[in-house]
Design a protein around this nucleic acid. Sequence first.
DNA 1: CTTTTGACCATTGAAACAAAAAAGTCAGAA
DNA 2: TTCTGACTTTTTTGTTTCAATGGTCAAAAG
Lengths: 201, 201
Amino acid sequence: MIVLDKKRDAIIEGAIKRFIHYGIQKTTMNEIAEDLSVSKPSLYYYFPDKSSLIEGVIEKIFADYFEVVEKDLYTDISLDERLNIFIEVRFKFFQKYYMLHLSGSSPDASLNSDELKAKFMGMKKKNIDMHVDIFRKAMEKGEIAALDLEKTAELYLESLMGITSLCIMHGNKELFPSKKDMKIMLDKQLSLSRIFIKGLK
Amino acid sequence: MIVLDKKRDAIIEGAIKRFIHYGIQKTTMNEIAEDLSVSKPSLYYYFPDKSSLIEGVIEKIFADYFEVVEKDLYTDISLDERLNIFIEVRFKFFQKYYMLHLSGSSPDASLNSDELKAKFMGMKKKNIDMHVDIFRKAMEKGEIAALDLEKTAELYLESLMGITSLCIMHGNKELFPSKKDMKIMLDKQLSLSRIFIKGLK
DNA sequence: CTTTTGACCATTGAAACAAAAAAGTCAGAA
DNA sequence: TTCTGACTTTTTTGTTTCAATGGTCAAAAG
């Protein structure tokens, strides 16, 4: 069973490599198989279909994300600092996995099945919940005023995501946003976050 | 000359009626002509091409928008109140002209020519400038702290626009966002605006 | 019994082309 | 100066074709 999981993980990592470079739609199961020097049916032995593989990929990426952010979750820093760190972590993931289009509210067009959408929404929910906890602790510490935690956390994340969304749309000339646009986006998110948090005091 | 302008305006209004219902792309010059009981070459007598007509339409709509918001511009109300009014005015325009997709950072796909994009960006710039003025006055009154007006006004509008953008993407099931989603979007914008302005104090 | 494969099928998606519709033009009438 | 019917050119749309891709299966390998 452990070996089986290892192979599963190897396939997922191989898929991620392709996805990062060519995107989900432009990556074929054959290519993933060839990269790993196995036959296509082998892939289908571990994953019933392409959707399941994509699901595994999403799980992996979000697991990595949560691992990174939860590491800093219990350090004693100010709310502002903590959220700045989170914004920068998300920014790194955004850049790395840009071709998977996991950032917008609506995920990649490849995420067509209901299961995938549900998985994706589940991950987003977990992220909101984490921010609710962060805001709760900040509230208990008196860093921010009493408020509707759920609603506020959602609005906070959505406002940041909105900036990302506009950034992507704006630079619709190229396939990939320029480093410059990326930097501008990050700065805007940091500025907005600072103002937003100040507005909660 | 006045008669000529009158006909021009009539054509623009006829075009707007079609655009509101079917969108820019699905409206043909023939249909606009037929609605007005004139021939197509008559349209081309007043507008060299379809882009010019669209340009006229955009000018008209934004002229209406600025007329409405500038009316309240010199009343003596709080920054919060003023911005809430503006959000609701923009919301009404967003609903009314939804099919023209004039809301996002990137306008409708129909706005393909460089002139149209320039015109559209010019309108957006004027809106930012107006908000810069509003923020300046608020700053002079001591309603908000000293800050980079241009940058702040842009960030403010962009964060609101981001909410709109996500709202549109989210409800990609239907052609038109539901009244419910619209209401949620409006509420989010009002909440975000309140927090944002408080964060500027 | 678990894992892997070559050969196969069914569907999707892109390329090429034809048909339709739209944008845009022009000589000439009102 | 303003407008039109008839026309040309360009774009969009529909269709056919065919290769590429997702997915299956019986049988082999370990």
